[in-house]
Design a protein around this nucleic acid. Sequence first.
DNA 1: GAGTTTGAAACT
DNA 2: CAGTTTCAAACTC
Length: 779
Amino acid sequence: MEEGAESSDSVAEKVKENQKGKGVVVVVTDTPERSKNNQITTSANKFEDSPVFNFLNSLSPIEPVKSTHITQTINPLSFASIPSVFTSPHVSSLKGSRFLRRHQLADPSKPEFATDGGNTINTNEPIIDSANKSDKPDGNLNQEGSVDEAVCQPSYEFSKLEVELSQSAVYDSSCLHSSLTTSYDLSAKHSLKYACTSSTFALFIQEASQKGLYASGENEEGITQIDQDKEATGCDWESFISDATDLLISESPIETESCKKSVESGESFYANASNNMQNTDSFSAAGLGEQVGERSASENPSSQLGEGSELKEIAETHDIVAGCSTSNPSENMDDEPDSGLHRGVRRRCLVFEMAGAFRKHLDENSASDSSLLMQSDGNTSSGDGQLNPTKDRSDSSRCVLAGIGLHLNALATTPKSYKFVAKSSTSAPHEDLLNNSSAVTMLEREISTVENGVPSVEDDSQASGYVVNEEITQSSPKKKRSKLEKAGEGEACKRCNCKKSKCLKLYCECFAAGVYCVEPCSCMDCFNKPVHEDTVLATRKQIESRNPLAFAPKVIRSSDSLCETRSDSSKTPASARHKRGCNCKKSGCLKKYCECYQGGVGCSINCRCEGCKNVFGRKDGSGVIGTEVELEEDEGDITEKSTVDRSFQKTAIQNNREQNPDSALPATPLQCVRSSVQHPFSTKNKPPRSSFPSIGSSFGKTGIFVARPKFDKHFETVPEDEMPKFQGESPNSGVKSSSPNSKRVSPHHSGLGTSPTVRSGRKLILQSIPSFPSLTPKH
DNA sequence: GAGTTTGAAACT
DNA sequence: CAGTTTCAAACTC
């Protein structure tokens, strides 16, 4: 007991020191050391100096490097997106977090770390003893002899938890992670509350340091507090989510509400995001990590103490814990029924999705970290129904995929949102942007891929996930492409087939869309890859210098449409028009050769087409687009080709998704208004597809970008709440063709005349808009 | 899968 | 700005 108290004190001191100095990482390392010290009965100072401590510290940095390396080395094909993601600031943080966590996870499992784990256990021992005194029936470690095992299990579980957390909190920063670990050792009690805010977080650390190790002495109290925290957690989470960020949402314990919350958070996120995006993201991630870590920590102590029940509760309360928290997987399994667990799992999946997918890819390519990944995956899978950490890749992959699918889908739906984010962040220097942009593009690409793979976003995440993975993994790009094309998905993900342009001209769909070419592309001598980022950017600039709108969405939704849509849903004008208009001579604007048709918009005065029969609207204005093709079909001209109609519908829908999305989709509302109207740049920024921002000029910063995806997720995942808002704007504007309401009433749309009313209507839009200025590329 | 058609993009 | 060439997607077989 005394030893434990001492250790706790020393730990507290360390924590304080860490706060001042290194920070979390150190603390984390301390944890194991502490345990060691406890065993050895050494002072905190000693173990700081101890080689083990140094070793641990050295470890943390190593992994980040790894991650970075991966990003660079990763093939653009399957991994490109992922690596890019990592490149982003958030990503970097993520990397760190992940890897760190992985190590942690690995640590327990691996013999190397076994010692550490043993140490931790030892540190916990005093606590355990106290716990034993308390003699909780549930306690696993009632007996000293069993302590080691019990401790080991807890630590193992803890590692799992961390893994899950890391996965879930993809965006977590390493710093956050460290903080989490710290909190874990010191006290899980405060985690949730403090996690809510960065400031609170700091406070939390302080308190933890102060109360710190008291775990031994105050174990019981700590547990009770934890329970209280659990109860309060919901509120905290909510507040946290609302205040902080989207990311958490996915992870947030509140599942059913998570969507709504996520949406809300997403909004708030946007509002605040532009400048603070990174901070918020990291923060949120940190908050999650902290919460999780703390919880896990609390769990560990509790488990050590022999309070398995409490742990369970905690785990349940906290989704994260659910999978791993309980020392007995079976128990968890039993608990699974709890919506909470599933929820947590799902969230994780959402969060993981990206990470999981990446991991998978990584794993496949490099089996090195497979074990860790597998575990994480297994956890994810647990979420699906299997709490047991399965190491089977297949299972894990499935789980991951599932999770990924959801995530990607969400992202995919919101590629534009990314743009926004990026734009908002634009203030960052180009270089940063480049990296970020690359990351963004990659994400977008993946997203697009996902979309391709998954026609219905809402579909099961799993299905989508599979599709995505398959696509990514598939060796032959052509096949994939053909499949995708056949599927009709295609547009979202651009897969070019360039042979001479090196994918550095607008001929290349990928380049034109502002995304890097990916594996599925069958291009030759492709320079449109992160590796050639400089070239891509330079080329982009060049093209933009020639035509500032070159990368702007080809189809512009006029502000009028937005106003109309809002004012009168019935009218939904097909205000959208092709930026420059088509020049068709033989296709009659009834084939995809026609960009207007392809974009699902009617021809306008700007068009110089001959024999226009555009179903969406003829140049002369005669053509009114009904909901979709159907109305148009009425027209004799259109009826000509049933195939055309079908394809048209598909295209129209796709277009709506893709192009409109720019204007309408994800950010539709925002984008539409801003891009077309307010910010001349915005038009550029909003690449019809996704992304430009990603690549280059506009690129958003990684941070923003990253955040965005989450937001998107929320969006999609929880379309209900927010969707209405956004949809209200965007869908109409962007999708009119798709939207039933959408008939084009007024052919003319300047497109730029944004309606202030619209803006006023949405807070988010307005707020977020300001941040975007960067989008308009500094060019 | 190969070949043709088409129109945008790029070039002059 | 117009005309021509290049290019890759869209389409057809």
